[in-house]
Design a binder for these strands. Structure first.
Length: 667
RNA sequence: GCUGCUGUAGCUCAGUGGUAGAGCGCACCCUUGGUAAGGGUGAGGUCGAGAGUUCAAUUCUCUCCAGCAGCACCA
């Protein structure tokens, strides 16, 4: 006689079940409500199918839609399978590959049948319709264990070349699982899945777009069609998500940049920004802000050459590793005399800097440095050019010319932890001044790397210790270590900002570098009178001015804090008779340091209010006959319906206060 | 860089094998109006660049350039 299985439940109770029973049986034994609500099970912590039999005594937690994270993951994975099934049902001969869940949905990479063009947006409605049919048919999803050879045979017989190739290179003795949808379709999958397609809400998904993707992520391989969808537990969640996407589109910095007349891009200088007066005012404020910050933190500002001889880049190692991203120029007067080539083939080459670090080392190397001078912190608003792949360019976020708030700290081994800790504190102040919350991550050694394991142990420990010392290695700061994400030469700390609609942006970073000081032979004289190698800490807080401004625009949806707003106030007149008074008010504001505009156009006040509101001007000062007689202004603040009547002096004082940069506010 | 889509007025976009349209914006006129669009008139375009097919190309085809989405990339 077989023994009963002991299944313990989250509430501490225990149930005895027949061998071969499943989580679904437990759910049914507890009650019909739970049986219906159960989507999957956690068995000893592992997410599993409801119908997969227990293998022994176990701890069981049933997963319902209340366990949102698990439930979403399951639903999205199932949507992906239903998508693949639908595509094959509609177009037999379509090859399927992979289809995982993503952050807000799912995708499936497929290859259209031979002779048919790749799937396009136009195909999506039909696929969605077929998916709804499959969901409504409530097909049971059944797990089966297959051998590798069984699978290969199956895929090969069906012409599923990609699946077959994948199965081929799995370990020979591995037990593989497949999932049946009903009894007419199956996919190789690790699972788990919901018990049936009917557990999905047919109104809770939407196919979003198609895009190219490489088989196994490699450019050399065949290009598949990736069909993206967003998937949720119910229609309400789907609509909320679609609404968020609309919000994000409204905040798009490329759109706002045009509407607010901040900058433009054009094809003759693609990937580089034409800053307009409005946009560059934001830049100037940021630059002034950053100078105050670094001046107070013991940095010294430098400015280094834009173009350096290729030989220098060879020494630094960039020529070898980074040349394909560098703009190279001949060090020669171009030929204008005859029909010959513009430059001779043996011209010496120079390169526009893609990074500031080598030049900073060269500054450091001038003269002889004593250990007493360390740490030396060299800062530069460093304008760099990188010849990025064209497909990577994106508004201000990814450009070919950008200016980093870049600094390199040259210090001794003993100073690393304290320097990194001080940096953590500086970054914290700065991000908070802009109203961002953030998370700190430590990117650990990648598989492919330089240096000994001991060096990596040491470098990782230093960065970790600094964050601990700063008191930031906590959940509050989103502290997390990311295995395999580090640069090939060093681990790095990364700061990920969270913006107003919950997106994250990696901006700040600090990493220790023992390689470049060595390559460029930077030394200092130690206490012992001998030469020593300094460590170099690369660090940035904004990342680049371009990108940081892009993030600010999207974070604030264009409604920048007053101190960053290009125009802080506009004086708008109601009738032309008060234009002289309006001019007087504007002149006083300007004299007091406010960036003020005027609007004396022959338009109604409604029109002016609308226009300046859309332009995100924070304060509108309306003047009519009443204000002119009383020496006042009617101030309307962006986003508020109410207006305030203030004397001109009060308005000046108010705007001065409102425009104080965040770091200069008295606490 | 790869795949797909797109490129028409300053912006957003419609349209056509016989060299073009709307709304907004802009200029001028009327209107002087109290907190998110007052009315009228007018100016603006080598229809991304080049080549091909054609009697004729902004329209069809090809190449290139750029943008968008995704992929890859982000030392």
């Amino acid at each position: 006689m077989t023994e009963l299985l002991k299944i313990s439940l989250p509430d501490g109770s225990m149930r005895e079940m027949e061998p071969g029973s499943t989580p679904a049986d437990v759910a049914a034994a507890i009650g019909p409500g739970l049986a219906k609500a159960a989507l999957a099970a956690r068995v000893d912590g592992e997410l599993r199918d409801l119908n997969r039999p227990f293998e022994g005594d176990a701890e069981l937690a049933l997963v319902t839609s209340r366990d949102e994270e698990d439930a979403l993951e399951l639903a999205r994975h199932d949507f992906a399978h239903v998508l693949a099934e639908a595509v094959q049902a509609l177009w037999p001969g379509t090859q399927i590959t992979f289809g995982p869940a993503t952050a807000d949905g799912f995708y499936y990479d497929v290859m259209a049948p031979e002779g048919r063009e790749p799937f396009s947006m136009d195909d999506l409605p039909a696929i969605e319709e077929k998916m709804r049919e499959i969901i409504k048919a409530d097909k049971p999803l059944r797990r089966e264990v297959w051998s590798r050879s069984q699978l290969i045979e199956k895929w090969e017989s069906e012409g599923e070349k990609f699946k077959a190739e994948w199965a081929q290179q799995l370990p020979e003795d591995e037990e593989l699982t497949v999932y049946w949808s009903g009894d007419d379709w199956l996919d190789m999958c690790r699972g788990p899945h919901l018990a049936s397609t009917g557990k999905l809400d047919p109104q809770a998904f939407k196919l979003m777009r198609v895009a190219g993707a490489y088989w196994r992520g490699d450019q050399r391989n065949a290009q598949l069609t990736r069909i993206y969808g967003t998937g949720w537990l119910n229609k309400k969640q789907l609509n909320a998500h679609l609404h968020r996407l609309e919000e994000a589109a409204k905040r798009d910095h490329r759109k706002l940049g045009r509407e607010m007349d901040l900058f433009h891009l054009q094809e003759e200088a693609h990937g580089s920004v034409f800053w307009h007066p409005n946009g560059y005012m934001i830049w100037r404020e940021l630059e002034a802000y950053m100078r105050r910050a670094i001046d107070g933190a013991g940095y010294q500002e430098v400015k280094t050459p834009q173009v350096m001889d290729a030989r220098q880049w060879e020494k630094s190692g960039h020529w070898g590793k980074y040349r394909e991203n560098m703009f190279v120029v001949p060090d020669e007067v171009p030929n204008t005399e005859d029909e010959g080539p513009l430059v001779s083939s043996d011209a010496d080459m120079m390169a526009i800097k893609p990074m500031n670090c080598p030049a900073h080392v060269l500054v450091f190397k001038q003269g002889i440095t004593s250990y007493r001078e360390l740490p030396i912190r060299l800062y530069e608003n460093g304008c760099c050019h990188r010849n990025e792949p064209h497909g990577a360019l994106h508004g201000l976020m990814r450009v070919r010319q950008f200016t980093q708030d870049d600094a390199h700290i040259f210090c001794t081994e003993d100073q690393i932890v304290a320097e990194v800790q001080a940096f953590c504190e500086l970054a914290d102040r700065i991000y908070k001044d802009f109203g961002f919350t953030y998370e700190i991550k430590l990117a650990l050694r990648p598989d492919q790397r330089y240096g000994s394991d001991e060096d990596w142990d040491k470098a990782e420990a230093e960065l970790r210790q600094a964050v601990i010392d700063a008191g930031m290695a906590t959940e509050e700061y989103g502290w997390e270590e990311l295995p395999g994400e580090g640069a090939f030469y060093a681990p790095k700390l990364e700061w990920h900002l969270t913006d107003a609609i919950g997106r994250t942006w990696q901006v700040g970073t600090i990493q220790s570098d023992r390689v470049l000081p060595k390559r460029l032979d930077a030394t200092y004289i130690g206490e012992d009178g001998n030469r020593h190698r300094p460590v170099m800490l690369h660090r940035a807080i904004f990342g680049s001015y371009e990108r940081f401004i892009g993030i600010l625009i999207e974070h604030f949806a264009g409604r920048l804090p007053v101190w960053l707003a290009p125009t802080q106030a506009v004086v708008a007149t109601i009738v032309s008779d008060v234009d002289p008074y309006g001019r007087e008010v504007a002149a006083k504001l300007e004299a007091a340091g406010t960036r003020v505009g005027t609007d004396f156009r022959n338009e109604k006040i409604n029109y002016k209010v609308r226009e300046h509101s859309l332009a995100k001007v924070p304060h509108l000062l309306v003047v009519g006959m009443r204000e002119a007689e009383e020496g006042t202004v009617a101030m309307r603040t962006l986003g508020e319906k109410e207006q305030k009547v203030l004397s001109v002096d009060e308005a000046i004082a108010f705007l001065k206060g409102a425009a104080t940069p965040a770091d200069l506010l008295a606490d």
